[in-house]
Write a protein that binds this DNA or RNA. Structure first.
Length: 422
DNA sequence: TCTGGGGTCCTAGGACCC
DNA sequence: TCTGGGGTCCTAGGACCC
């Protein structure tokens, strides 16, 4: 590559949640940098949220993996320091990173809480693009205190694969001519778009590396993955060759769905308790809908069984779009009653789909008029906005042992994640 | 004192209509 | 009375991502 090209960078925060914690703690007088000891950000085991969300490099050396149960991590690494997650702090760090990147380019695409794509302004030579990436890497470390890995290439897929090549605090190129040398030796499951199911299938056909995948007849791949989507096999083959054509999207696609789910601290075995959990979930889902000025026509609940952790769901499409907490709750209660088979429940979820802007609500004559309830919603939203989310809660939850507002990361959560097109 | 929570996209298969 | 085909809408669930 010896001419000017359009350059795409992928910026990936190293051990994001753990790094954010480390920086925050150091800023507040901590003497230990948790990045330098075996540590991890993990939910509480007591409330059955005990999985590893991010780990330090020393913890990784003990074999601790993201997504595994905390007790497993403790077995592998008895001295591990576990830190409870603080999502508002992580959102703060995320916003600071995005602000910094936007000083370098108008074309920044937020991909998740710890990943961004960006297009370098103008066309650059290879050496210039590497210098550009280092400038950003250095600036982030100096100003924000955490490190990033930067992948440099000419499309988003290769930039993303590139940022994986070296961590932490590193810049790696993965230009198309380097694909054979740097990407093909990697295990096929490292390729973006190859998950557990696809990897198992590929291994059965003796396709073990990305290079193997690249050499496979695209017709065979189309056949193997036809149940995923019409073009999934073709897409994987193109990815294996480093081909990907999507643009940097500076504004996310419109929201398609808003939902919240939660693992309950104990097994739910009766309808009344399940209803209470659904109400607390409907509260957060309703608030998020109203905040986004959205209404939805498809209401759904999901039920996660305690024994095998398998989830099943039930949904309904209604005549008019709603955003009212009580309306959502009422549909969810009916859905739950119709779907629940009576087994112990580990967790419940509520979601609303088929969204439209709340300006266009058409109230069907067949359905309830929720006007009065909507006024209550607005009042409650306003009080919570001013005095905090728990300033006003429903009487049902007092002393119930249940959270009045359920759901994970809260109002700021929800990053669009693209599957077929980066 | 046993594994979270937020999304997107896609297909299969049934119901229903012409 | 039996049979075919095309199309749309809807729900359940799988696969993927971070």
């Amino acid at each position: 590559m010896n001419r000017k090209e359009r350059i795409i960078l992928h910026i990936d925060v190293n051990s994001a949640f753990l790094s954010f914690e480390a920086v925050h703690r150091l800023q507040h007088g901590a003497t230990v940098d948790v990045r330098k000891i075996p540590s991890a950000v993990a939910g509480s085991q007591a409330t059955r949220h005990g999985i590893i969300l991010a780990k330090s490099l020393p913890a990784k050396a003990y074999g601790v993996k993201t997504g595994e149960a905390s007790w497993e991590a403790k077995q592998k690494c008895p001295g591990i320091v576990l830190i409870p997650p603080d999502y508002p702090l992580y959102m703060c760090c995320h916003r600071a990173l995005v602000r910094l990147l936007k000083d370098y380019s108008d074309k920044v695409q937020v991909f998740s809480i710890d990943e961004c794509f960006m297009e370098a302004p103008g066309m650059l030579m290879k050496e210039e693009s590497i210098r550009f990436a280092h400038r950003i890497r250095e600036h982030v470390r100096q100003e924000l205190g955490f490190t990033v890995s930067v992948g440099v290439s000419t499309n988003k897929l290769l930039a993303k694969m590139g940022s994986e090549l070296k961590k932490p605090d590193a810049v790696s190129t993965l230009f198309p001519p380097e694909v054979g040398k740097k990407m093909w030796p990697l295990p096929v499951e490292d390729l973006y778009g190859v998950g557990r199911a696809a990897a198992a299938k590929l291994h059965r056909y003796e396709i073990h590396t990305i290079g193997d995948l690249a050499e496979t007849d695209v017709k065979l791949l189309s056949y193997l993955f036809k149940s995923y989507s019409r073009d999934h096999g073709q897409m994987l083959w193109e990815y294996a060759h480093g081909v990907e054509r999507s643009d940097i999207m500076t504004s996310g696609p419109p929201t398609k769905s808003i939902g919240n789910s939660c693992t309950v601290h104990f097994d739910v075995e009766d309808r009344e308790t399940a209803h209470a959990v659904l109400l607390s979930l409907a509260e957060t889902v309703g608030m998020r809908l109203r905040l986004a000025n959205l209404c939805g026509r498809v209401i759904g609940v999901s039920i996660r069984k305690s024994g095998d952790l398998v989830t099943y769901s039930h949904q309904v499409k209604i005549q008019s779009s709603i955003d009212c907490t009580d309306a959502i709750y009422e549909y969810c209660r009916r859905l739950f009653d119709a779907a629940w088979k009576g087994e112990p429940i580990r967790g419940l979820g509520v979601w609303v789909n088929d969204l439209s802007s709340s300006g266009y609500i058409q109230l069907s004559a067949l359905e309830k008029d929720w006007d009065e309830k909507k006024k209550v919603d607005r009042t409650v939203d306003a009080i919570r906005a001013k005095y905090g989310p728990f300033s006003i809660v429903r009487g049902n939850f007092v002393q119930s042992g249940l959270a009045p507002l359920a759901g994970g990361a809260g109002g700021d959560a929800g990053f669009p994640v693209m599957t077929s097109i980066l």
